[in-house]
Write a protein that binds this DNA or RNA. Sequence first.
DNA 1: GTCTGTGAAAGGATTCACAGCT
DNA 2: AGCTGTGAATCCTTTCACAGAC
Lengths: 290, 290
Amino acid sequence: MATGRTHRPATRSRGIPEATVARLPLYLRALTALSERSVPTVSSEELAAAAGVNSAKLRKDFSYLGSYGTRGVGYDVEYLVYQISRELGLTQDWPVVIVGIGNLGAALANYGGFASRGFRVAALIDADPAMAGKPVAGIAVQHTDELESIITGNGVSIGVIATPAGAAQQVCDRLVAAGVTSILNFAPTVLSVPEGVDVRKVDLSIELQILAFHEQRKAGEGERVALPIEGGDLEPSPGGSRGTEGERVALPIEGGAQAGPMARAGQDTGAAAGGRQQGPDGDVPAVMPA
Amino acid sequence: MATGRTHRPATRSRGIPEATVARLPLYLRALTALSERSVPTVSSEELAAAAGVNSAKLRKDFSYLGSYGTRGVGYDVEYLVYQISRELGLTQDWPVVIVGIGNLGAALANYGGFASRGFRVAALIDADPAMAGKPVAGIAVQHTDELESIITGNGVSIGVIATPAGAAQQVCDRLVAAGVTSILNFAPTVLSVPEGVDVRKVDLSIELQILAFHEQRKAGEGERVALPIEGGDLEPSPGGSRGTEGERVALPIEGGAQAGPMARAGQDTGAAAGGRQQGPDGDVPAVMPA
DNA sequence: GTCTGTGAAAGGATTCACAGCT
DNA sequence: AGCTGTGAATCCTTTCACAGAC
């Protein structure tokens, strides 16, 4: 990239690679855990192990943020926590609305993760009139009719969609029209949004299917067992489609493609195996500032 | 790759790229929807739009599976549904256990996605004795003590961890010891597993943080507003770490990295093909690859 | 003419390996 | 001596663009 002449590039180069951005939260979590244990500094090797990546990748990632480490020593934990938080935009408060308070929506609302680290549940919205007024996670559910006023009134720019697939696009359109520019979609649907709007998708069924793919490969080590499927024909059935298919579906939950912290690549072991980074009782969830 | 001499390579080349595997579930979902509407054939352009990717990518992906299309016509929907299902290992039944029946675990158990398409919830497990015997989603919750016998008794190879972060590694170790080789982790922790075990992670707080990053960029268009953070120092505070830190977070839910299907499904082609898919207004997030 | 399948080019991301600071 | 920061090499993914099948 840059000539690399100055040993302090520019604090923040213009573009941080997406892959790096996706890992910053992992580093932040590991760092916060260290911070809680009052660990003052950490080496790239140690931090990488705690985050489940290898040290070369971590150093490269940090190099995009600037030179925050000290050669021969490592990184100052507190300082890095601040820098990464700032880079991720977590030093400010982000009001979030959750639309669709079913099982999943309620679980999300109850999840502590929202309350901490810059995210605040500004409102819970559901289309069922019977839900209106009911408290979930200490917050009264509001009816969909109020969606627009809630968004504009609270300056919400991030929305979470946890509705059934059939309602997702409609909800999405309304959120966007009201001013939301980032959406976390749990519904198993591809959402269409105008340019400038960010959508991330979380799809459980997709994750399970990816696991099934690898699981199958393990099982059929060297041999491929093809068991008969109920109703499955090798050739396309000319008849109707319905029948066996039933409803497709799925709870959403997915992201992209990374194949997990470890696993298949035998060598990745180095990073993970290298250390039992987690403490016996879990690695500490984390910590972060309110 | 192969010389491409034979127009029917080998039905299944040895290795399908991870990025492709991660997209197969998307194609499958779109195809199933078409199948339900009794659509007989579909072009790469149409299917790509429905799945939220561009057609070149889709064709390349399918080329790894074999030549299942017909030039000048498109793909036979039913046939492709079968081929992809088979490739993903969904033509067989996968018993799954969910450990940790809190809000999230219950939401997952209730989610229809499990019941369909090859996955079956074989058991719900929780450490709270008070939960034992209680029915959730029609299945009686069992105590953690029975974890090993449940796994071996049902031949479970896929486990879902929805416990608090502190219990995740321990649960993971027990699942693996009992024979589970694929894990879907919802706890905000990096899990250590032996080689051969696949772990996929889903982390909500990470997804939100990634959205916040892009959201911040949009806000500071051309100008970077640095609002003062409460308690945030530029220099590392030498003092203790606690104080402001509070609790970190995170409901999990993440995967990899894909940033969303992006804009319109309709003209995805144009957008992508044209060139910079991102909009003119800046860098816009964008789409991430795996 | 239409639309798939795929080499080849382009673009990213990861890993290597070592120069250079402490 | 120890550890970061980073060019260079490698590997993976996406996009282009067109030959070839229908």
